[in-house]
Amino acid sequence: MSKKIQSKRRDFLFTVTYTIGAVGVGAAIWPLIDQMNPGSSVKALATTEVDVSSVEVGKTIIVLWRGKPIFIRRRTKEEIEEASAVDLKDLKDPEKDEDRAKDPEWLVMVGVCTHLGCVPLGEKGEYNGWFCPCHGSHYDTSGRVRKGPAPNNLEIPKYEFINNNIIKIG
């Protein structure tokens, strides 16, 4: 065998070895990284059912879902009108009110400010919705961000009405 062929053979073997080695190291490291993701016991708690029959018009209840507060607000007529009357051009994160509240009377949102995760205070702020005390974000009566550093509207979780009284979140 000439020297040239030999060195090509060597290069090939080195490349293959490095590649397989890198895959092996990656495979060994992945469990060490993935262990930090939510575990089975955490994922198992992914749905919550809430009885909302006792909530009056103009009241909000807060329940915990996946360790996060969920705002369930039974909105007043004025609030619904105010929310649907907003021009989408005025919104930082444009969303129609009817897309956010399936049943306009019930607004179900994750009560976590989309800025840095504080819990906004209800019926406060310049738009009669929510106000985050941490860094001053204002949300309207549909939970849409109107002012302040938050980039998005308050998140709407996956939920459904099982019957007239019970909402299943998750």
Binding site: M36, N37, P38, V42, R66, G67, K68, L116, G117
Partner: peptide
């Protein structure tokens, strides 16, 4: 979570859950 695209995944990875908790 401000990091585009993977921000949410990173925070959940840091938390070991969907919010700050025991993990």
């Amino acid at each position: 979570s401000a990091i585009p695209l993977i921000g949410e995944n990173i925070t959940e990875w840091l938390w070991g859950g969907y919010s700050v908790g025991n993990p």
